[in-house]
Structures are given as C-alpha cells and as structure tokens.
C-alpha cells in the first residue's frame, strides 16, 4: 500500500485526479454543505462521517435502504427451507413414530421454522449490507490521503468525484470554501 504521508499532494503528481475533498468541523456544517451539494445537482459524491449523522439521508436525498427487501426474501427462503426439510425428512423420507406424535405437524415444526427464518434473515441483513455497499473493498483513492484517516475519529468530509458531469475544480473549491469547508484537497486515483 502506498500511503501519501504528505498532507498536501504535490501539484506535479502524475496520477489522474479522482476527486476533490473538503473537511468540515461538525455535523451541523456537514449537513448544511450536503444539502447544498445535493441542490447543486451533483451525482458522484459522498459524505464521510465517524458516525451516521441524523437526517443525512434526507439531506443527501438518499433512498431508503434496500437491505429490507433482501432480508424479506431471505426470511421467506429460510421459512420454506425449514418447512420442506422438516416435512420431507420427518414426514416422508424417514417415517418413524416417536412418542405418539404426528410425523409432521405445524405445531412441532414452528420452533425450527422460526429459527431458520431468523437465521436466513440475519445473513440477508449482514451480507446484504456488505453487497449493497460493495464491501469488502480494501483499497480506495481516499485512503491515500493522510487527512482522510481522521474521518474515523472526529472529522467530517465531503468528496466529489471527478467523474461527476458537473465537476469543475475551481468552481468546487469556491463552493466548498463558501460552505465553510477546510483543507480542500485533490484526491488522486491509486497508482
């Protein structure tokens, strides 16, 4: 991993530009800035904060997470699997009467029906979250910036990618400055 230990990139860096980042001091100014960036109509941009800032979804105009649908699907899968498993294994393939209980009945199947639904839903939640976030991904242009590492502590960052159709570095610098952004810095692609 090549870490850029200097806090300011050398202007003659040959690597292509990935985007521009600006630092904010607190959630309030971050929220204000995010609302502004959204209003300006940017698409390829993101906000980075040490914890989920309340109301940021709304400020950024994010849609509700789709992880619930993945969970719902997984829940039904788990339920169906548990039902088929108990019905086929206990009621069809290996018929043996124990304690005078029916071979298969919804009453006795309920505990496992429930457990497997929950288990599958939990897989859906965690792995669904990772898939939707395209994680794990151990490399990212932002990780090259020494200052970005403070986001995991107490800094708040907005980064706009060069891939955005409205990306224009001087304009963006001015915008960030007017929003109270500090340490506005170029982020280069990984070499």
């Amino acid at each position: 991993m090549a870490y850029d230990h200097g806090s300011h990139a050398a202007p003659d860096d040959a690597r292509p530009l990935w985007g521009l980042m600006a630092e904010f001091s607190d959630p309030a100014s971050l929220s204000r800035a995010a609302k502004h960036v959204k209003k300006e109509g940017f698409r390829n941009w993101d906000v980075y904060s040490p914890f989920p800032v309340h109301g940021m979804d709304e400020a950024m105009g994010l849609k509700p997470s789709r992880v619930t649908f993945i969970m719902g699907f997984m829940c039904l899968t788990g339920f169906t699997c548990a039902w088929l498993m108990q019905w086929w294994m206990g009621g069809v393939d290996y018929k043996i009467v124990v304690a005078g209980k029916p071979l298969f009945a919804w009453e006795q199947a309920t505990p496992i029906l429930f457990e497997l639904s929950v288990l599958f839903s939990a897989f859906g939640a965690v792995f669904g979250m990772l898939i939707l976030n395209l994680l794990p991904r151990w490399n990212h242009p932002l990780f090259g910036k020494q200052r970005f590492l403070r986001v995991s502590d107490d800094r708040f960052v907005i980064a706009i990618e060069a891939a955005d159709p409205k990306f224009n570095e001087p304009d963006l610098r001015r915008m960030f400055e007017s929003l109270g952004g500090k340490h506005i810095d170029r982020v280069e692609e990984e070499s």
Binding site: D46, V47, M56, D57, M60, A125, P136, H140
Partner: peptide, 26 residues
C-alpha cells in the same frame, strides 16, 4: 472490510443494524 465511513454506506448499515435488532428481539 475497507469501511470508509461513507454516508451511503451508513444508510444501508443503519437499516441493517436496526433490522438485525428487530429480528434479534424475537
């Protein structure tokens, strides 16, 4: 896992966390 504190990630994360709490309760 290369977590980078992105708000777009937090959006999915918070929902997943809450839903996980929801199914862990029963």
């Amino acid at each position: 896992m290369g977590w980078r504190f992105s708000a777009r990630h937090w959006n999915n994360y918070e929902k997943a966390y809450l839903m996980l709490a929801g199914i862990s309760t029963p």
